[in-house]
Amino acid sequence: MVISILASLFFLFLIAIAYRFSDSIARQASRYMIGMLFMLAFFGIIIDMLHIMSRSLSIEIVEDFIGMVEDGGEHLVMSVMAWFVFLLFETSPSGNQMFKDYLSKKSSRMENKRP
């Protein structure tokens, strides 16, 4: 649990720095990321505690269900976060241009290596 809290604080710190030095669009994206980070903490900490407590009930179906909610929630939130970051990169003009530049440099390096 301490590791989860420290990891969450680390990412909150990075998001806060990005929030402080960004424009309004990036601030809105940071607010969404903070919300998703709190959702991840909910599943990773709160639901995990319920999962640990459910083990003492000795009711296997309840333990399995809470474990499924915990793991599924974490995976779902992380998938949405990854999709969100990818979508930000794809829709921003600078991100899209960076990707195109990267691909053109990579393809030119590949062509130069051919005998």
Rank of each mutant, 00 (worst) to 15 (best):
1 M>P: 04
1 M>N: 09
2 V>K: 11
2 V>W: 04
5 I>Q: 01
5 I>D: 10
6 L>Q: 08
6 L>S: 06
6 L>K: 07
7 A>T: 08
7 A>H: 05
8 S>A: 13
8 S>K: 00
9 L>T: 11
10 F>V: 03
11 F>C: 00
12 L>T: 02
12 L>D: 02
14 L>Y: 07
16 A>R: 09
18 A>M: 04
18 A>C: 03
18 A>H: 02
20 R>K: 07
21 F>C: 07
22 S>Y: 08
23 D>F: 10
26 A>R: 11
26 A>F: 12
28 Q>I: 09
29 A>K: 07
29 A>D: 09
30 S>E: 03
32 Y>N: 00
33 M>C: 02
34 I>Q: 05
34 I>N: 00
34 I>A: 04
35 G>A: 04
36 M>G: 14
37 L>C: 06
38 F>K: 10
39 M>Q: 04
40 L>W: 12
40 L>R: 01
40 L>N: 15
41 A>P: 02
43 F>S: 07
43 F>D: 02
44 G>K: 06
44 G>Q: 05
45 I>S: 13
45 I>L: 14
46 I>P: 02
46 I>D: 04
47 I>E: 11
47 I>S: 09
51 H>F: 15
51 H>S: 13
52 I>E: 12
54 S>W: 07
54 S>K: 09
55 R>E: 12
55 R>T: 05
56 S>Y: 15
56 S>G: 04
59 I>G: 01
59 I>M: 03
61 I>V: 13
62 V>M: 02
62 V>P: 06
63 E>T: 15
64 D>Q: 11
64 D>L: 00
65 F>E: 13
65 F>Y: 02
65 F>C: 10
66 I>F: 03
66 I>P: 10
67 G>Q: 12
70 E>G: 07
71 D>H: 08
71 D>M: 12
71 D>V: 06
72 G>T: 02
72 G>W: 01
74 E>R: 14
74 E>P: 02
76 L>S: 04
80 V>F: 10
80 V>H: 00
80 V>W: 05
82 A>E: 04
83 W>C: 01
83 W>D: 01
85 V>I: 14
85 V>S: 05
86 F>D: 04
87 L>G: 00
88 L>G: 06
91 T>E: 05
92 S>T: 15
95 G>H: 14
95 G>I: 15
96 N>R: 14
97 Q>K: 12
98 M>N: 15
100 K>C: 01
100 K>I: 08
101 D>V: 01
102 Y>M: 15
102 Y>P: 01
105 K>M: 14
106 K>H: 05
108 S>V: 09
108 S>L: 11
108 S>K: 11
108 S>A: 15
110 M>H: 12
111 E>S: 07
112 N>W: 13
112 N>P: 00
112 N>R: 15
113 K>N: 14
114 R>Q: 13
115 P>I: 06
